[in-house]
Amino acid sequence: MSTTIAAILERKGHEVVTIAPEQTVSEVVAALRERGIGALVVVDGDDGVAGIVSERDVVRHLAEVGGDVLLARVADVMTTPVHTCTPQSTMDELTEQMTERRIRHLPVCEDGRLVGIVSIGDVVKERFEELHDHNRQLESYVAGSY
């Protein structure tokens, strides 16, 4: 059985760094650098997910319009619609969604409310832990059979 997103959030935490659509790309860049993350969830006034803005979005718009992109509003560069998952989603579902859609960050929503975010790094870490646990079980089994 595949691990649920709820289990991942229990280990990593539920903190999500957000930004408002009217803020600037310059503020996005500062938050990404300061927090050492790759994306911010754009929220509207009701804590609903309005979009997501990532390093990729900033670089794509930088290539298109140059340095003036730093003055643009987040709403002008964010990705919409946003693909999300739920705490009940599984790692297998998440991996498939990220691979098919070529996305690296998925906000986690429950009852229309933002409750976390999962990145491709979280997926890799979880898969590594699963493999490590499986390897330990095999070693224990082999050691116990002699």
Score class of each variant (00 low, 15 high):
residue 40 L to T: 03
residue 130 E to S: 00
residue 94 L to Y: 04
residue 61 H to C: 11
residue 22 E to F: 10
residue 75 A to G: 06
residue 50 A to H: 07
residue 144 G to A: 13
residue 29 V to N: 05
residue 112 G to L: 04
residue 60 R to K: 03
residue 118 V to I: 11
residue 24 T to V: 13
residue 99 T to A: 08
residue 38 G to W: 11
residue 42 V to L: 01
residue 127 R to E: 07
residue 102 R to G: 15
residue 126 E to Y: 07
residue 126 E to D: 07
residue 23 Q to P: 07
residue 26 S to D: 15
residue 135 N to C: 04
residue 133 D to F: 01
residue 49 V to G: 03
residue 77 V to G: 03
residue 101 R to G: 13
residue 52 I to P: 07
residue 17 V to E: 08
residue 79 T to V: 06
residue 76 D to Y: 04
residue 29 V to M: 08
residue 36 G to C: 06
residue 43 V to N: 00
residue 40 L to W: 10
residue 94 L to S: 05
residue 135 N to V: 03
residue 109 C to K: 12
residue 36 G to M: 05
residue 64 E to S: 10
residue 91 M to P: 12
residue 109 C to V: 15
residue 84 T to S: 14
residue 143 A to K: 10
residue 59 V to E: 00
residue 92 D to L: 03
residue 31 A to K: 15
residue 67 G to Y: 10
residue 76 D to P: 00
residue 45 G to M: 03
residue 66 G to M: 10
residue 1 M to F: 04
residue 121 G to F: 02
residue 98 M to N: 10
residue 43 V to T: 08
residue 19 I to M: 12
residue 48 G to N: 04
residue 109 C to E: 14
residue 38 G to A: 08
residue 141 Y to G: 03
residue 42 V to P: 00
residue 5 I to H: 01
residue 7 A to Y: 09
residue 94 L to G: 05
residue 8 I to A: 09
residue 112 G to D: 03
residue 3 T to G: 02
residue 47 D to R: 14
residue 13 G to I: 03
residue 34 E to C: 07
residue 137 Q to F: 04
residue 110 E to T: 00
residue 10 E to P: 05
residue 130 E to P: 00
residue 146 Y to P: 09
residue 30 A to C: 07
residue 108 V to N: 07
residue 78 M to E: 06
residue 75 A to F: 03
residue 83 H to L: 14
residue 89 S to F: 04
residue 25 V to A: 09
residue 90 T to Q: 06
residue 60 R to T: 10
residue 76 D to I: 03
residue 27 E to I: 02
residue 121 G to Y: 02
residue 60 R to I: 11
residue 101 R to D: 08
residue 77 V to I: 08
residue 121 G to I: 01
residue 111 D to F: 09
residue 9 L to Q: 04
residue 20 A to L: 13
residue 85 C to W: 09
residue 35 R to M: 10
residue 140 S to N: 14
residue 139 E to G: 08
residue 23 Q to R: 11
residue 45 G to K: 04
residue 126 E to V: 14
residue 28 V to M: 06
residue 121 G to L: 02
residue 76 D to E: 13
residue 50 A to K: 10
residue 52 I to L: 13
residue 136 R to W: 02
residue 57 D to A: 05
residue 133 D to K: 05
residue 119 S to W: 05
residue 26 S to W: 14
residue 26 S to N: 15
residue 41 V to R: 02
residue 29 V to I: 12
residue 138 L to H: 05
residue 94 L to H: 03
residue 120 I to K: 00
residue 123 V to Y: 00
residue 2 S to I: 10
residue 23 Q to I: 06
residue 127 R to G: 06
residue 82 V to E: 09
residue 37 I to K: 09
residue 9 L to F: 08
residue 59 V to T: 01
residue 80 T to K: 12
residue 81 P to C: 15
residue 33 R to P: 01
residue 73 R to T: 14
residue 81 P to S: 14
residue 60 R to F: 09
residue 19 I to A: 13
